[in-house]
């Protein structure tokens, strides 16, 4: 299932996040990369270097937009100015699908700039699904929502995280950006079996997969995106690929960023788990 309606029927292979420390390498060496993921908000500006840089990238590479502040799960309405700017960016990048997080982060117009975990209630699922539908109708592009890593659970929750994810994506009829590192991090923080999570997600809705590294502390794990991917996360990735088929995959590395070649090589380890295309030798 390499292509589906949630990723614009594309087959994008293995990409990496576009990050400033790599710009010089990319423009000087023009390395072969299947695709880049950009953080939408970094380019939702009105001029200057960010947009000029993006245009140079778009001349050579495929780009998919990943958002960090749509906050589908916030009780307040969608921010119309945010949507307007996001739509302008989608037109610029021609991103075949876009992603953001299944979380909340703003209240009464005040922004936390964090990806806060949802209370897993039916009320929250219904509201979140409605906002995803509204955004998709306005943006006219498929949307996939990403499961976040979390460090807290709430007494008001009425279901598990994966049940909540399923409830939202079925109601919204949207895709899933399955972050297997986030599943691992949350499974350790909340003591659940990550395989149960991976096996519960509707495989036909998986538009994209995230892999990443994290940091382990004495009493919890933090999703820091500053290390290579560990073996248990690769195992979850393998399980997800078995269920969903070869799926657009993206390595996130956001802090203590090593060289472009190191990040790209880490991402390409994912190819070990992807079946070779018919007639191709790996």
């Amino acid at each position: 299932m390499p292509a589906n309606r949630f990723n614009g029927f594309t087959d994008y292979g293995v990409g990496i996040g576009l990050r400033i420390p790599h710009y010089a390498h990319i423009f000087e060496r023009t390395p072969v990369v299947d695709w880049f993921e950009i953080i939408s908000e970094n380019f939702m500006v009105e001029g200057g270097r960010p947009l000029a840089t993006l245009d140079r990238i778009l001349e050579r590479y495929r780009v998919v937009q990943h958002g960090v502040s749509m906050y589908f799960g916030s009780a307040e309405p969608l921010n119309r100015e945010h949507l307007r700017r996001l739509k302008a960016l989608v037109r610029r990048t021609k991103s075949p699908w876009i992603t953001d997080h299944l979380c909340w982060g703003s209240v009464d117009g005040r922004y936390s700039h964090d990806l806060l975990p949802m209370p897993y209630t039916f009320e929250a699922a219904a509201l979140t699904a409605r906002k995803i539908r509204e955004a998709r109708d306005f943006l006219e592009v498929p949307i996939a929502v990403e499961n976040v890593s979390s460090y807290a659970e709430f007494h008001v929750s009425e279901m598990t995280e994966w049940q909540f994810l399923n409830e939202v994506v079925e109601r919204a009829d949207c895709g899933v950006l399955l972050d297997v590192n986030n599943i691992y991090v949350s499974s350790r923080n909340h003591s659940f079996d990550p395989d149960v999570y991976v096996n519960s997600v509707p495989a036909e809705r998986i538009a994209q997969i995230h892999i990443a590294g994290h940091s382990k502390f004495e009493k919890y794990i933090l999703d820091t995106h500053d290390h290579p991917v560990i073996d248990p996360v690769w195992s979850l990735y393998q399980a997800a690929i078995r269920r969903a088929g070869p799926t657009a995959t993206l390595l996130e590395w956001d802090d203590r960023i090593p060289s472009f070649d190191e990040v790209h090589a880490e991402a390409r380890k994912a190819e070990r788990y992807l079946p070779a295309p018919v007639g191709a030798a790996r």
Binding site: A152, E153, L222
Partner: peptide
């Protein structure tokens, strides 16, 4: 309103987000 677990109290779990903010 935050559930504790076997390693962290409710306040400690919320404090992770508080400090991160």
């Amino acid at each position: 309103y935050v559930k504790p677990n076997d390693r962290l109290s409710s306040a400690e779990r919320l404090d992770i987000y508080h400090r991160q903010y």
